[in-house]
């Protein structure tokens, strides 16, 4: 609030410094926001492709699993699922996109050969193998989707934060600072005008006093001259 600020030259200078800093920060944050949105658009295209692959892979995997269930029976499929020894592992590393740390997911043991699966060649059928293959492929797409979608979530959070900061500067902080600056400038101008007026008044009074003094001195001199003339006439 402008009324809370003391209208002093020191405060005006401090506010001008803050305005300069805020304007610079606002420009930088705007550039960051635009840059993040551009990076986000690139990831979005990738995400949409991955999403389509994910839906397709899921449908295929489900179809193959249903086929295996229908042909081999639910118990056989569950038995094969329970026999698996190797499990897929993921390692999450990070990379930096415009200050946002996004994950890079490396996977291992997702795709397995028949002998790595652990349920034995004789105990299963080609349909169960096909279903396992399809689900392994689906897992690879899921890992890719997790990487891309986590990056998107993190970037969206950063975009939202940056947008809020830009808006706070643009619609709250800077207008308040401009109002305060204007208020102090007006007050200082008013004080300056009052000062000039006061100086003028003092000057006028001083001049009046000097004029009165001069008039009095002149009158005294005239009176003295008149006395001197009168004495000379008497003599």
């Amino acid at each position: 609030m402008a009324e809370d600020v003391k209208p002093t030259r020191k405060n005006l200078m401090a506010i001008e410094d803050r305005i300069e800093l805020s304007e610079r920060g606002h420009d930088t944050l705007e550039q960051k926001r635009d840059g993040l949105i551009m990076e986000f658009m690139d990831i979005l295209d990738q995400a949409q492709d991955v999403r389509n692959d994910l839906n397709e892979d899921y449908e295929t995997a489900q179809r193959k699993l249903n086929m295996a269930r229908a042909m081999e029976g639910d118990v056989a499929v569950r038995g094969a699922a329970a026999a698996l020894k190797e499990h897929p592992e993921i390692t999450i590393q990070s990379k930096n996109i415009m200050g946002v740390v996004v994950p890079q997911i490396e996977s291992s043991k997702v795709k397995k050969s028949l002998d790595e699966r652990g349920y034995g060649l004789l105990g299963s059928s080609a349909r169960i193998d096909e279903a396992a293959d399809a689900y392994e492929e689906l897992l690879e797409t899921i890992i890719l989707a997790a990487e891309v979608e986590t990056a998107m979530k993190k970037m969206l959070t950063e975009i939202e934060t940056t947008k809020r900061r830009v808006n706070a500067l643009e619609f709250k902080l800077l207008p308040d600072l401009y109002t305060n600056q204007e208020y102090i400038e007006q007050k200082l101008e008013e004080q300056e005008r009052e000062e000039i007026f006061r100086m003028k008044k003092i000057k006028e009074k001083k001049e009046e006093a000097e004029a009165e003094e001069a008039a009095a001195a002149e009158a005294a001199a005239e009176a003295a001259d008149a006395d001197a003339d009168a004495v000379a006439v008497d003599e």
Binding site: A61, P88, L139
Partner: peptide, 19 residues
Amino acid sequence: QEIAVIGSPDFTTGFRLAG
């Protein structure tokens, strides 16, 4: 780390088949 699956037994079986 690992991958976790949550859902009905029908949903999780396929993933268990993938390890």
